[in-house]
Design a protein around this nucleic acid. Structure first.
Lengths: 201, 201, 201, 201
DNA sequence: GATGAATGAGTGTTCATTCAT
DNA sequence: AATGAATGAACACTCATTCAT
């Protein structure tokens, strides 16, 4: 026994991820997690104060990866491609951990309020980043008029749904992933309705 | 005692809605609901076989209102306005019951599988309606190219998030609501990025 | 409504018998009984003060039939045949209501003590009758030596088991029933071991 | 805390036996058992998955002791004494645990079907052993003619009743016990009716 | 007499958390 | 550091009984 402390923590985290994946948060019992990690129950509480906090640790991980995934757009470069790259990165960050993504985005309310708060916090960070980017974009003229808050919420929501949808299916191929990136980009860039470009009947 | 059976059912439904709103699904105990409704526990089980089913009844209500909210677009009329009207209706259907909306769209996975199924079923119905409309639109030339499945998921996801966001805030004024309708319409119609309409640097 | 009071009581009794047959005492709910009798729950309590008492009423019925079934042996007649007739009658009284017999003899302990008492009381009555008969028989020289109490308990117990066994099976034919009568008579009359009638090895 | 696991199990078993004795199966609450054992409710479920299974464990114990109590009759020895010894052993096995015996033989129907099954299973084992022995005996000429099935059921039933009767009373003295053994043996060997050995009047 | 909606005390079971070893 | 036996508060659900109509 007595392996490295960090190592043990990582093992528990990994076990929790698996169990959450299989059973969802509520149905995942601490017993399941320690069984998966092959440690005793006491050990669990040596590393995490309670069940929620191991989920939070997992969530924080995801949040961090997300923040790193988004790059500031540099007007000096190919803007469209940078935007595409950001879409691609965000998609990738989530798809790297479908389980966590699913749980994460699926629980938003109706749970322990503290827990919900955690999920919200991460979302708000993302939202804030996107909103600021949109505001910048408006100043630079690469984003059209509109309430940046609404635009950000809508965009993130759309991507979330796409993600959730994708996570439910078998792992996406490279092409499928790229198609999604392209579609999202197109929606953001031109929308898809062509109403007023048609002669009124 | 012995008031009208339908009335009592409605009271329980209303009580449940309130309690779910205050505490979320898991934290809402049957005891809370019956206390809110001022009936005994036995009475609850006279009207609903278990806790889940009272939630499902609430969900079904919402689903029904949603389906009624969406109208088929008639090309002979003002298409843009009809689309706006659909956006407006869907928004309205949800905003009429912020609590339920929140709970409903917040739970998607990680809960009792049977329960999740319910929520999914409603979403899929909505999605199917939208996807079909988009496909029709493409044939009629009022919807641009793109995978209708992806477009539908993205659009619904965007609206969901907007909704969830709105539900968290104080009740929306008429103007705020209309602004959201307009913004969504604009995104769908033109997107918001203006990248390739700018001269490349 | 408002049919004859005795009639209603009988209907409830019949319904209870059926339900007890199908489900056993504990699993038979008052709701089941009133459903079977097509009356309301309130009506049940109009005729019986509680669930146990309807069972007791059924039990009393059985006890009465039993007592009537046993005839005093008249030494002036064919004694063997009279004993056989008594065996036959007791067997018949029980087999007339296999359900009640089963429940009745199956519950003896482990239930509400009051309830058990009822069952015991009936058994004791039977036992007392038999014991007295055996005592008489000993005086008359038609019953061999032995503790009449033990003989009575053993004999009744044996018949009870035979009965219970028979009740579990399909209804007995006339011949099967007669065979049991004959076997029991033979056991009581001669036993079945032939040990000391064999030359010791 | 944290005493030996087997020890704790035994304590719970003992506590359950007492409580079942005092209150019967249905009236014995898990709360009663854990109070008797001075452990928490959680501990109970650590050792037994549910209430029924602790009863089954008790029943299995009894069944095992019974099977060990019955010895195959060896014709080369004193057959009568061997039969007496078997009667004595079976009696002893039950009387060693009057409580359990009472509950065990008193419940036969009307309870949870699964539960009943357990009790029946044990009885059937006993019956099968006895029936086979009788069949052997008939071939060897030490058991008279008659349906071995009926003989077995009757014999076991008689003993059961004697047992139940004895269990209700104060603990039997050695002499009382031996008297029962002798009486049962005599019944089986010669019966107790002396009808046709008397001149008809 | 009859009804059936309402009651609420009661019960088996779960599981996150603790702590003596 | 690690264990795992022990805890006990919590909860969904049941059902015999009551009583206003």
């Amino acid at each position: 026994m007595a392996i490295d402390k960090t190592q043990r923590r990582l093992e528990l985290l990994a076990a929790a991820r698996n169990v959450f994946a299989r059973k969802g948060y509520h149905d995942a019992k601490v017993d399941d997690i320690v069984a998966e990690a092959s440690v005793s129950k006491g050990t669990f509480y040596l590393y995490f104060p309670d069940k929620r906090s191991i989920f939070e640790a997992l969530a924080d991980e995801l949040a961090q990866q997300l923040q790193q995934a988004i790059l500031r757009v540099d007007l000096a470069g190919n803007v469209a491609e940078q935007v595409r790259q950001n879409i691609r990165s965000v998609l990738g960050a989530f798809l790297a951990d479908p389980t966590l993504t699913t749980i994460f985005f699926s629980y938003a309310a109706g749970l322990d309020p503290d827990f919900v708060q955690k999920v919200r916090a991460v979302e708000h960070t993302l939202l804030a980043i996107l909103e600021e980017a949109l505001r910048d974009g408006q100043n630079l003229g690469i984003v059209g008029q509109g309430d940046p808050g609404i635009l950000a919420v809508f965009t993130l929501g759309g991507m979330k749904s796409l993600l959730l949808d994708a996570c439910q299916k078998a792992p996406l191929s490279q092409e499928e992933r790229e198609r999604i990136v392209e579609e999202v980009f197109r929606i953001l860039d031109h929308g898809y309705l062509r109403i007023d470009r048609q002669p009124a009947p």
